[in-house]
Design a protein around this nucleic acid. Structure first.
Length: 459
RNA sequence: GUCCCUGUAGUGUAGUGGCCAGCACGACAGACUUUCGAUCUGUAGUCGCGGGUUCGAUUCCCGCCAGGGAUGCCA
């Protein structure tokens, strides 16, 4: 089956899903706090995946009712985060149309007023002396039939919840329910921290004369030490991953695997396959710790899987931004050599530093390794004269020169490779030796050999 | 305090009333007569604890413990 056929089969599958569940509507409803949190991104992703899997709609709604918490440009950071990860929304900010807008809570006051009035007429709310409005809880046991947590019973003996403040602004529970109702949200997929709020929401839906949506509460993401991941924590913001040049597809893949499993042993999955396989039964119930090392490994895998062009397009701008003194022609040869040597493209400027300038800095531990071997200077001297004697500077010529030096010294050429690398680049690691030496050029290599021998001679 | 959710190696997960509990990351060790966080091979490490039910439990039930969440005129 070729790509085109597979695409057609997928389209067919998607279509049949649409037919079986024509009305799936999910939403992501962030507050504009100024950045997209990885937990929020994961919640958004699960909603997006569920909608895409079922051929439904993914709605983006901005919960900006609490003016104190909103910071300037907070919305943009969230939208950028979602877009960077590749999540598009069918309705919401920046999208034309949508039958159930506006998509900012700050613009939906009239709807909240309308539903409050309905509750007042039914006598389901009461106003306190100071003007706050409370919802009269029926006080009956509420059953949440959660798609992930199962059937959960709640006894309702808490105080009646406030739904409107004395200043006329509305409380989260109320606006959230009114919006989900008005927007025709069919599936609410959100963090498990909301499970205990759900009976309140169900009561409100019923009071408003509507059937509640299907609920699916997903496990939370914790820090490596098991504590709840919050704003201050390293790696909590999606923008950090963009800045460090993680591939968005790596982040999405990793996030999808946090709490969801395709149930086979595969871990690196293309997005369309994640969409095809994503569903509630694959989601587990226990909280998960965020493992940066595994994400980085995933990124390295995907970096290696990129074809040459894609890798260049990803990596070249990063090197360019570092304003390195490396000719483009050299870079064109160099970058492909580095594709399997880095986990993140953002490591490249540092890794390529030794390709700049006549001289280079010597990594102290690499140098120390050379210094430990009494033969190092002899070997470097032999290499030096072999290189000097070499008329051309092709990889074959360089290889022949190394062979010659090895023969003179009566050692295996392997003994010469590491000293040559350190002397020429100052580093213990890097691209393959022969192309590295070739790209550095004969003169520069010889200069650095002298530098290295001097450094070794120094106490 | 009360209520709710969860508990498979350090981490993410698979799985079953009964073959050596599978995979991946990480760690460690070797190999690749060149480096390497790449690749290959190998090693160590797990069913939270205690009771039951059962011929037999990681799997079912109860208790405990631990972690997380909710109990706001935050979202």
């Amino acid at each position: 089956m070729d790509g085109k056929e597979r695409l057609q089969v997928r389209r067919k599958e998607a279509l049949s899903r649409v037919m079986s569940s024509p009305t799936v509507r999910t939403r992501f409803a962030p507050s504009p706090t100024g950045y997209l949190h990885v937990g929020g991104a994961r919640t958004a992703l699960f909603n997006w995946l569920y909608a895409r899997h079922h051929g439904g709609a993914f709605v983006l709604r901005i919960e900006d009712t609490d003016q104190n918490r909103n910071i300037a440009d907070g919305i943009e950071a969230i939208l950028n985060g979602l877009l960077w990860l590749g999540m598009d929304w069918d309705e919401g900010p920046g999208v034309d149309g949508g039958e159930v807008g506006p998509y900012f809570q700050s613009q939906r006051q009239h709807l909240y007023d309308k539903h409050l009035e309905a509750l007042q007429q039914k006598g389901l709310v009461y106003t306190e002396d100071n003007g706050a409005v409370r919802f009269r809880s029926p006080g009956e046991t509420v059953i949440v039939d959660d798609q992930i947590c199962g059937r959960v019973e709640f006894n309702r003996d808490e105080p009646d919840m406030t739904i409107r403040r004395p200043d006329g602004s509305y409380i989260f529970h109320f606006v959230n329910v009114v919006d989900d109702l008005e927007m025709g949200i069919t599936h609410v997929i959100r963090g498990e921290d909301h499970l205990s709020n759900t009976p309140k929401h169900i009561e409100l839906f019923e009071a408003l004369g509507a059937a509640p949506p299907v609920y699916a509460h997903i496990p939370l993401i914790l820090n490596a030490d098991g504590s709840k991941m919050s704003k201050r924590d390293q790696g909590a913001s999606v923008s950090e991953y963009a800045e460090k040049a993680y591939l968005p597809q790596a982040v999405v893949n990793y996030l999808a695997l946090l709490g969801w499993s395709p149930k086979d042993d595969r871990e690196i999955l293309p997005l369309d396959e994640i969409i095809a396989r994503f569903d509630f039964p694959g989601i587990n119930k226990s909280n998960a710790s965020f493992d940066l090392k595994k994400l980085t490994w995933l990124n390295a895998q995907m970096l290696m899987a990129l074809d040459g062009d894609a890798f260049w397009q990803h990596a070249a701008p990063i090197v360019e931004q570092a304003q390195m003194d490396i000719a483009e022609a050299t870079l064109r040869e160099l970058l492909p050599l580095m594709q399997t040597k880095v986990s993140l493209a953002s490591e490249l400027p540092h890794k390529l530093a030794s390709f700049q300038g006549e001289h280079c800095d010597y990594d102290s531990s690499a140098l120390a390794k050379l210094a430990k071997d009494a033969e190092s200077d002899t070997r470097l001297a032999a290499l030096q004269s072999a290189f000097e004697a070499s008329e051309s500077w092709t990889e074959d010529a360089i290889s022949a020169a190394i062979d010659a030096a090895a023969e003179t010294l009566e050692v295996k050429k392997g003994k010469l490779m590491f000293p040559a690398r350190v002397a020429a680049s100052g580093q213990a690691g890097g691209p393959d030796l022969l192309p590295m030496l070739r790209l550095l050029g004969k003169d520069r290599v010889l200069t650095r050999f002298q530098d290295a021998r001097k450094a070794l001679a120094a106490p």
